[in-house]
Design a binder for these strands. Structure first.
Lengths: 226, 226
DNA sequence: CTCATCGTTAACCTTTCATTAACCTAGTCT
DNA sequence: AGACTAGGTTAATGAAAGGTTAACGATGAG
């Protein structure tokens, strides 16, 4: 499971659709219909990486929520706004939000915005590294550190590694990887992924606790030490 | 907490959003809904470094306020104007605004203007230099000093260098640079940035601790010594 | 009008890196 | 066993990104 997203949307149908769509894109979604329900749930706000708020929500609560999110939890948020709404209002909101998007919206566009925000977020916290046994990985810098030497990964290598980090101790489908990194929806013939697997294995060859074993016909089993 | 800003904006929502946004950008904001309230508060006008005024405000008071600010407190100010309004009219008021910005506005643009104004303000009090290894940089004068010789940078060179100084030891996205210095939101084709990179590299060639390595497809990794 | 400045464009060259090709090795099926 | 297929590995390839230099052209000052 991937990044956690808070969704506040009072329309039941739209909320459900968004939740499902985002989950199918490998996000973990908590959906609330009202800001109040969310504010009452103390744990809810923790450990999320993005909030999506519907501006049509009863307004004061929406504002309070936005304020809380911005001040106390410092996660980015994105507003959903209906088309007819007052321009000043929306653009005012835009000032406080990291982005906004007008309903109805293309799912692809929503995803794009989400990824942009998360990427910005990522590059704003540059020195945060993930410990991987004898290695350390800095996702923002695409750097792998081993024995005081820095290995500069390419973009695709880093993307692939990041994906694996979100699926530690799990088996990842070959197709899922291809869809995520190559966007192929049809079946994929090339061998690029295998070449990248070789490269990653070579990078991590000095720590035997790290492995990407292939499961024939399925995908790869990911193992990083805790 | 950073620089103090006076905000006069009568729309409650927009005011709140602006206040929050600016506070999140590390400014200290005093927000008044009406100029009168501000004029009545004798202490309010002291110790601020910038005022942001909504031109939609009841005109006479707004005019008086601007006059007061300019004559008695000598802090710079910035007008918010709605899109339909004539810019000429505002300029015609000869209030001596340091800048104006039309609503709706991009958050980044607002911040940029604010920083520009404060920078101009700052450059009136010069000779504050930043140490860069064997070099010294004076952002206000666009000057680089090396071995007692002064290298006069152009405006864009200095802007680019300043941007990099704010991102030491980080990877800066190519797109972010282009957006910030060239304001291109669409896809950018030109090679100006690369030319400037060459120029900066040439300036700094005598201190190997300073580097701007390119990360293909991403941007540049900035390194200055501490 | 002339000259200098400076951001931009043009042209050409080098480097990078995802992909492909080619050849292996190891499972799986009959 | 032999045939077939998925995956491993290595090297070659080619398109695109980036580096560099020179020339261009807008702007503004004298």
């Amino acid at each position: 499971m991937g990044t956690k997203i808070l969704l506040v949307e009072d329309d039941a149908d739209l909320g459900m659709v968004l939740k499902q769509y985002l989950e199918s894109s490998d996000f973990e979604v908590k959906w609330y219909t009202h800001p109040k329900a969310l504010l009452d749930d103390a744990d809810a706000l923790k450990n999320n990486q993005l909030a999506i708020l519907d501006v049509m929500l009863p307004e004061m609560d929406g504002f309070t929520l936005a304020k809380t999110i911005r001040q106390q939890h410092q996660i980015p948020f994105l507003f959903l706004t209906a088309k007819g709404q007052s321009i000043d209002r929306i653009l005012g909101l835009k000032l406080g939000a990291d982005d906004y998007i007008t309903k109805p919206c293309e799912p692809e566009e929503l995803l794009l915005r989400i990824h942009n925000i998360l990427k910005r977020q990522l590059s704003a916290t540059p020195n945060k590294t993930v410990n991987l046994g004898a290695y350390a990985f800095n996702p923002a810098l695409y750097q792998l550190v081993f024995n005081d030497t820095i290995i500069q990964l390419t973009e695709k290598e880093a993307e692939l590694l990041s994906l694996f980090l979100n699926h530690n101790h799990q088996i990842v489908n070959r197709k899922d990887i291809l869809e995520k990194l190559w966007g192929k929806d049809d079946y994929f013939l090339g061998r690029s992924l295998d070449v990248f697997m070789t490269r990653l294995r070579k990078y991590f060859q000095h720590d035997t606790r790290i492995s990407f074993d292939s499961i024939r016909g399925i995908g790869f089993k990911i193992e990083f030490p805790e």
